[in-house]
């Protein structure tokens, strides 16, 4: 059965692109327009991995990660954060604090994202 991935971003074009890339690579993808909606999907059926934008309405990427880290069901799910913020945040600190797998800066490469996802889930060989 394909690994399930939840993608949260308020840019519909971004979620569309990621969804397309990951689906072609054999993953099952669920998209959400903000952290709040994303959390509902994650809580209901904990996915294999979460890709989330940082700046989102309702609940941002930081908030979503904190929620996940407080819940036993979602505590250990790998999270990849996408952000358009470059030097404004200390990526190392954020990664450690929220136990992020990786931070990707927008504009990002879907190809690199896919590789990162596959690496995180240890499925690189199987899918490609």
């Amino acid at each position: 059965m394909a690994d399930r991935i939840v993608v949260c971003d308020d840019e519909p074009f971004i979620t569309h692109a990621i969804s397309l890339k990951l689906t072609k690579a054999g993953f099952e993808v669920v998209t959400a327009a903000n952290g709040q909606l994303g959390w509902k999907h994650i809580e209901q059926d904990p996915p294999a991995l979460v890709i989330t934008d940082l700046q989102m309405p309702e609940l941002d990427g930081f908030g979503l990660c904190r929620l996940m880290r407080q819940n036993d069901q979602t505590r250990n799910i790998p999270v990849i954060m996408l952000t358009a913020k470059g030097f404004e945040i200390d990526h190392q600190q954020v990664m450690e604090e929220l136990k992020l797998t990786a931070v990707m800066i927008k504009p990002f490469s879907p190809r690199e994202l896919l590789e990162l996802v596959q690496h995180s889930l240890g499925t690189a060989a199987a899918v490609s």
């Binding site: 840019e11 074009f13 971004i14 692109a17 397309l20 890339k21 358009a84 927008k106 504009p107 879907p110």
Partner: peptide, 14 residues
């Protein structure tokens, strides 16, 4: 600028 650029880059690469 980055936000629309991200979409463009993603689709062109794909």
């Amino acid at each position: 600028f980055k936000t629309p650029l991200a979409s463009i880059r993603a689709f062109v690469e794909m």
